[in-house]
């Protein structure tokens, strides 16, 4: 499943489209306040773009961007960002995940502080979901025997 594809069209189209897919994913995360979207959707789209890179350009090109150990670190980091923002509210005298009390730290009104808190939480969720999706795909695709029957038959004929 994970190998350097020999098809020129697929490789070229993937090469051109992947940066735009990734930017769209970040747009979906950042503009979850005003339009449909948010951390889950954006994280999954970001993960899908990395999966596309894995199945078109092979393991070497993809893993030099984000290695396997980094993915494992990232999905703890996403949950840590979420829980850390929640715990930060405890230190400022509010309840857990009550972003309104962060207003003196950010120099804005409590309502705007809630909006910024939502943004931070969404970024944490996006990182966690992205890395988990890539990790699940990578572990499934690397396990067991891979029989490339279809393409070898075509190449031989």
């Amino acid at each position: 499943m994970i190998h350097n594809s020999t098809d020129v069209i697929i490789k070229t189209v993937a090469r051109i489209f992947i940066p735009f897919i990734q930017l769209y994913a970040l747009y979906v995360i950042m503009h979850g306040h005003y339009s449909p979207g948010g951390g889950f959707q954006g994280g999954v789209i970001l993960g899908a773009s990395l999966i596309l890179l894995l199945i078109t350009h092979g393991e070497r090109v993809a893993m030099q961007r984000i290695s396997e150990n980094w993915i494992t670190i990232l999905f703890s980091l996403g949950v840590l960002i979420y829980a850390g923002i929640g715990t930060l509210c405890l230190f400022f005298g509010g309840n857990f995940l009550d972003y309104g009390v962060l207003a003196p730290l950010l120099h804005v009104s409590p309502a705007a502080a809630r909006s910024l808190g939502i943004l931070g939480v969404e970024i944490g969720v996006g990182i966690a979901v992205m890395s988990v999706m890539v990790s699940i795909f990578y572990n499934i695709a690397r396990s067991g025997p891979y029989r490339n029957k279809g393409t070898t038959a075509r190449r031989e004929s």
Binding site: P36, G37, G38, Q41, I51, F137, P145
Partner: peptide
């Protein structure tokens, strides 16, 4: 329910299908 539809299109229809196809290739 636009949010739910967006989630379904990105999560279940894309990544879920990718995972299932990978599983079928592997088994």
């Amino acid at each position: 329910a636009v949010d739910v539809a967006f989630t379904e299109a990105s999560v279940s229809a894309s990544v879920g299908t990718i995972l299932l196809i990978t599983a079928v290739f592997k088994t």
